[in-house]
Nucleic acid binder design. Structure first.
Lengths: 248, 248
DNA sequence: CGGCATTTTGAAAGCTGTCAAACCCTGTGG
DNA sequence: CCACAGGGTTTGACAGCTTTCAAAATGCCG
C-alpha cells in the first residue's frame, strides 16, 4: 500500500497550482474558467470587481436564508452546499471544487448553506455589479448562463441518483463523479481525493454514514477500490465500478 | 362529495383561459410570462420566431439524448420530464404547467424526455434564434436567466425531498407544491388537480405506486384530504398538511 | 355489461436505518 | 516515548420503512 504522506503530497487539491488567472493571484485552475468562471479570455474581469476570501476547514461562508449579496468562485479547496430540515436532517446539494461557481440567489436570499470542507479560497463578486458586468461584457453573461444550465443538468442527474439508485450504485456513482471532475482539473482519475467525511457523503447521497461505510467496505472487499491513506482511494477496476453505478 | 363533472369543469387546466399573449393566440396564462417566459412587456416576442405544438395525452415531445434544437413554453396542459436508467427505473424531474419553460440543452442534446400527461400545447422557439433574440432584446436573456436560476433552486429543494423525507412527507410536499403552483395560475389552492398517474407521482417522489397509494389512503383516513372525482383532491386541513410535509 | 388499466389493499421480504460497541487515527500532554 | 482523549470510521445485531409480490376493487369506455 502506498505511503500516506506521498499520496497526500501528490494529489492534494489544496496544494495544486496549475497557473494564475492574471487578475487574481489566487487561482489554481487557470485553464478551466477560473479566478472566476465569469472571466473569459476575451473579457477579463477587472481586479476592482472582486475580492478574495479564505476559509478554514468547516468554516461557513454563508447560511441558508442569508442575504445573497455576493456570488463566488472556488479557487482552491473543497466546499459543500447543503440544506436542512427543521428537525436537523441534512441534504448536501453539491461538493464544489476549484473552478466551481456558487451563490446565485434568485429570490434575494440564499437557498443553501455554503461551508468549507478543507481550507479553501474563493473570489467574491458583489452581486449588484454583475449586471454592470453583463452590460459591459455580454460574453460574461453567456458564460454564466451556460454554467447555470450545466448545474441544472447535474441537479437532474442527482435527482435520478437520489430517487432511484441503490446504496451501492449511489456510492459508486459518487466516486466516479468526483474522479472525473478531478480529472478535468488535471489530476489522475484513478486516485480519488475524498476530504469530506462519511457523514458528508451520506448527506449527499441520501444515506447514513453506516450505509456509506458498509458500501466502501464491500467495494474494497470486491477489489474495486483500495484505500490510499486517510483521504484517498484508488480505483482498481474502473470498468466494474462503472458497471456498478447503475448507468450503461 | 362534489359531482365529478362539476369539479372537472371548474378546475380543469386544459380549459383555462385567462388571457392571450398578443403574439400567440394559444396562451392561457398571459399575466405570468407568456406565450413564452422569454417574452416581457417591454420586449414582445415576434410571431415569426415561434411555432405552436399540440400534444395528445402521453405523446412524447422529445426523448433524452435527442438533439436540443428547440426550447419550449407550455401554454396549456401538463407535461412531465423524466430520465431513465438502462434497466428501466425512472425518475421524473419535473411536472410542467402552463407558463413553464423547458428544453435548454447545454450540451447540445436533451438530458431528459418530455412527455405530455394531458392534452397540451406549447410554443416552440428555434434554439439558434435565441442568441439573436438575446442580442436584440437583452431583457429576454435576463428573464431566461432568472427562470433557470429558479429551476435550479427548485431542483435543490427536490433533492432535499428525495434524499431526506419520508414517504408521507414526500406526498404531502408534492400536494402542497402543485396546489401553490396552481394557485399562482389563478386556481383555488384547496382543490388540487392531479392528472398524473400514481405511478408518475411515485417516479417523481422516488417511491412505488403502492407506497404513494398507501399515503393517499392514510391522509384521507386522517381527514387531511378528500377525493373530488377521479383527478382532483380537496385539501381539508391545510395547516396539518403543511405540518406533515417536514418543513417548518 | 364486459374488458382493461389503474388504484387500493394485504402479507411478507428486503434494504437501509437505528442503536451500540469496537476500532482507528491524530493530536496532546505527561 | 507512551498514555490518553476525542472525533471519525467500521462492524454487528436488530428494527422498521418501503418495496415486492399478489389479489381484489374501482373506474373508464366501448
Amino acid at each position: 500500500m502506498a505511503n500516506n504522506t506521498d499520496s497526500q503530497q501528490l494529489y492534494d487539491f489544496n496544494m495544486a497550482k496549475t497557473g494564475s488567472c492574471g487578475s487574481c493571484d489566487n487561482c489554481t485552475v487557470r485553464h478551466f474558467a477560473l479566478c472566476s468562471p465569469l472571466e473569459t479570455d476575451d473579457f477579463p474581469v477587472m481586479e476592482s470587481m472582486l475580492s478574495r476570501i479564505n476559509l478554514s476547514p468547516s468554516e461557513t461562508l454563508f447560511y441558508e436564508a442569508d442575504a445573497g449579496d455576493y456570488v463566488y468562485t472556488v479557487t482552491s479547496g473543497y466546499v459543500k452546499l447543503y440544506k436542512t430540515l427543521p428537525d436537523g436532517r441534512c441534504q448536501i446539494t453539491g461538493f464544489l471544487m476549484p473552478g466551481d461557481f456558487l451563490g446565485l440567489a434568485p429570490q434575494g436570499t440564499h437557498n443553501y448553506t455554503a461551508q468549507a470542507i478543507t481550507s479553501a479560497s474563493l473570489c467574491r463578486f458583489w452581486r449588484h455589479k454583475l449586471s454592470d458586468m453583463f452590460n459591459q461584457f455580454p460574453a460574461v453573461e453567456k458564460r454564466l448562463f451556460d454554467i447555470i444550465s450545466q448545474e441544472l443538468l447535474i441537479a437532474q442527474n442527482q435527482m435520478l441518483l437520489l430517487g432511484r439508485k441503490t446504496s451501492r450504485e449511489k456510492v459508486t456513482s459518487f466516486i466516479l463523479d468526483i474522479s472525473k471532475r478531478a480529472g478535468r482539473l488535471g489530476f489522475p482519475e484513478n486516485i480519488v481525493y475524498l476530504p469530506m467525511t462519511r457523514s458528508d457523503i451520506a448527506d449527499y447521497l441520501g444515506l447514513t454514514t453506516e450505509s456509506v461505510s458498509r458500501v466502501f467496505s464491500a467495494l474494497r472487499k470486491d477489489g474495486l477500490i483500495e484505500n490510499r491513506g486517510k483521504d484517498h482511494i484508488e480505483i482498481m477496476k474502473p470498468q466494474e465500478l462503472t458497471g456498478a453505478s447503475g448507468e450503461a
